[in-house]
Design a protein around this nucleic acid. Structure first.
Lengths: 72, 72
DNA sequence: TTTCTAAGTGCATTATATGGCTCTATTTTG
DNA sequence: CAAAATAGAGCCATATAATGCACTTAGAAA
């Protein structure tokens, strides 16, 4: 699914920046448990949660029209 | 905020496609109430909800690294 | 191996998203 | 204009996301 990509990106980005889940959770002001669940693919996070995390990582969610050639 | 852009895009896209909230909600399989709340900026929808709605509109969420010149 | 650190999980509680129903307001249509 | 369609909002019940705490697991380093 597409969600997995997002999770993977977050995880990779965090690791690139060499931040632990604990630190990221603190800075982003989300519960550590929430971040752990998210990264381990367990949850269905709210937009707010993802946004908080993304921002700390210097990322953002963009909504875009699907390319036509992407029809699977 | 950035969330408003997403809401606006969803709304505009829906209107371009001339679909009512009711129809979109049905096709996307989300509650009409949920869609209404989302479009009116009231909610904090889950990723699943946004994904469902986006897909029906031929859109998708992308996570990207913020452009540097975007620092406000 | 032992120790330490980071990540993942079970459980319980609280907060809140979802969704149905109803009513009102606004917009569109005839 | 009146009627119909559409959107927004209040109330409420249910489902579930967010969270803390404690414990387990995995991996790295000594």
């Amino acid at each position: 699914m597409h969600l997995e990509n997002i999770i993977l990106q977050i995880k990779q980005r965090r690791e690139e920046l060499q931040i632990t889940q604990e630190t990221l959770a603190e800075i982003a002001e989300v519960g550590l448990r929430t971040l752990k669940q998210f990264e381990s693919g367990k949850g269905n996070p709210t937009l707010q949660t993802i946004t908080k995390i993304s921002e700390v990582l210097g990322m953002e969610l963009k909504l875009q029209i699907k390319p036509l050639n992407q029809i699977k």
